[in-house]
Amino acid sequence: MQELFNIFVKSIFVDNMVFAYFLGMCSYLAVSKTVNTSVGLGLAVIFVLGITVPVDYLLNDYILKPGALVWLDPEFADVDLSFLSFILFIAIIASMVQLVEMVVEKFSPALYSSLGIFLPLIAVNCAILGGSLFMQEREYQSLAQATSFGLGSGVGWFLAIVGIAAIREKIRYSNVPGPLRGLGITFIITGLMGIAFMSFLGIKL
């Protein structure tokens, strides 16, 4: 339990998706104009990461990694399908996003109308595929660890986008130099937020 909590906290603060790895920057920059929409997108990312990372973990564990097919037949012990992981992960992500969209639409229309347009966008958000690839690279040991990593990364991304949206709402009233307005100043603020988040690097978990 302790270990799961450590992975969760580490993936929120120390290995933050946005500030340490720059993942999901495209939608981070495009959708962070107001706090309301960014909360919606952030929630959708937490939701989708929390589902796709464990599913991709199972896929990796039972099909892709070297020797994973032993459960089918001991003959397959030296089959290594890991080169297929990109295409299978993206297929899983695209279909999970579609599935999640349908389920949410059926059971929670209120949530659906608030997430609505963001859900399909998420299929091509690199934070989602990045989450699965990091899960594969870091070799998490159990389904629970992979799940807490996925959820933690989502929460980290949520914090980042809500933070920048709040700052951008305020910065509208400031006198930013012309050429730096919009994109430029957003980049620099993100850099400064990244520096702030680096103070968590010292935490040993």
Binding site: F19, A20, Y21, F22, P177, P179, L180, L183, G184, I185, T186, F187, I188, T190, G191, L192, G194, I195, M198
Partner: peptide, 13 residues
Amino acid sequence: PPMALIIVGIIIW
């Protein structure tokens, strides 16, 4: 990492 963001910001400027 943060310096990359600041450098891109300056390039945009």
